[in-house]
């Protein structure tokens, strides 16, 4: 960590203090969702942007993380009431939030590994269908495994642990880990796979292993995001994590530009705030007395189609935006630009 990074982290922390004291509950919640979406988008970028596979599994991994962390953090007293059939040792267990979150992420990564073994040997876009299938499997299990998940009723009354600091902290960790990964030899191998998998394999890159690594790390952070989301909303059902969530994360990724971490952050921020605004407009709109529900999703989807046709590289086009360096001992030297497009 150099001085620049520390300075910007301190600046963000200060801004967050301000936000916490100035903003009302609604805006604080929107801000928390922005950070959760940053975690989701940056982690999805690893598989979809850097390796060039196409995962649609983020809703499934969120669901796994949310359910496991919920079962772990609920106090034994409420568990006895909500889930009487729970095994005794699990019923007595009460795990701190941080540990529950990490365990949720680890389980999501484990499931990703199980799905990845058959799928990641194949062409990248089989992954899209297999991960959507995983979403259906996770939902079906959540509906039918009533002893642990309470079935379609879902689990409510989760402790409201998630606050701005948790989501901010995890967003920083996600960005840091993904950034370090992408700018390491692993990351260069991933980008090589995206550009030409056959050539990468011929050069001695273990293609399947690197795809697996990206997919599992992405799933881990999606699981974390699910746990955070569950403890923010404090109620989860099998239908909380639908295809719509996955689609919206893909939209954020595409708008920001696949293969750019700063693009993901930008895309997640813009595409959380714009639909939030559109939704408020939508509820007040009508056409001859006919309400126009669904209009905001249509606008988003048409935007994506246009982005795909006219500006496929997204806002940042796979490049990174660098914040100005304020403390730099080598200011006289020309700056090496971090270019992840390789």
């Amino acid at each position: 960590m150099n001085k620049n990074t520390l300075f910007y982290l301190a600046l963000l922390t200060g801004l967050l203090f301000l936000a916490q004291s100035l903003l009302n509950d609604y805006y604080q919640r929107v801000l928390a969702v922005v950070f959760i979406n940053i975690i989701l988008t940056v982690s999805l970028n690893l598989t979809n942007g850097f390796v060039g596979d196409f995962s649609l599994g983020h809703a499934a991994f969120m669901s796994i993380g949310a359910y496991l962390s919920a079962v772990l953090t609920l106090p034994p007293a409420s568990k006895a009431g909500l889930m009487p059939q729970l095994p005794a040792w699990l019923g007595q267990l009460e795990v701190p939030f941080l540990a529950a979150t990490i365990l949720g992420g680890l389980l999501a990564a484990l499931v990703a590994a199980v799905v990845g073994i058959p799928v990641l040997r194949l062409r990248g876009h089989y992954l899209a269908v297999a991960t959507l299938g995983l979403m259906v499997i996770v939902r079906v299990v959540a509906i039918n495994w009533t002893a642990v998940t309470r079935g379609a009723k879902g689990i409510n009354g989760l402790p409201a642990f998630t606050n701005l600091w948790w989501v901010f902290g995890w967003a920083v960790v996600t960005v840091y880990v993904v950034w370090r990964l992408v700018n390491s030899s692993y990351g260069r191998a991933m980008i090589a796979i995206r550009e030409d998998a056959t050539a990468a394999a011929a050069r001695g890159v273990n293609v399947t292993a690197h795809r697996m690594l990206a997919f599992c790390v992405g799933a881990f952070f999606a699981g974390i995001a699910g746990a955070l989301w569950g403890h923010l909303i404090t109620a989860i059902t099998p239908h909380s994590f639908s295809f719509l969530i996955t689609f919206n994360v893909v939209v954020m990724l595409v708008v920001g530009g696949m293969g750019s971490i700063s693009g993901s952050i930008l895309g997640a921020t813009v595409m959380t705030l714009v639909p939030e605004f559109l939704r408020r407009v939508e509820t007040s709109l009508s056409l001859g007395g006919h309400p126009l529900y669904g209009l905001s999703q249509i606008i988003i989807a048409v935007t994506i189609t246009l982005v795909m046709i006219f500006r496929r590289q997204g806002l940042l086009g796979g490049r990174e935006v660098q914040l100005p360096r304020l403390f730099d001992r080598q200011r006289a030297l020309p700056q090496a630009r971090v270019d992840t497009t390789g």
Binding site: F54, H125, V250, G294, L295, I298, A301, I309, R312
Partner: peptide
């Protein structure tokens, strides 16, 4: 998108799906 990467078409088909679904919701309710 002819000649574009396969992923671009895949994303577009997701968007088309969303347009058709939400168009139906908007005109005929969910």
């Amino acid at each position: 998108l002819r000649g574009a990467p396969e992923v671009a078409m895949l994303i577009t088909s997701l968007a088309v799906s969303s347009v058709i679904q939400n168009g139906t919701i908007m005109t005929l309710s969910a």
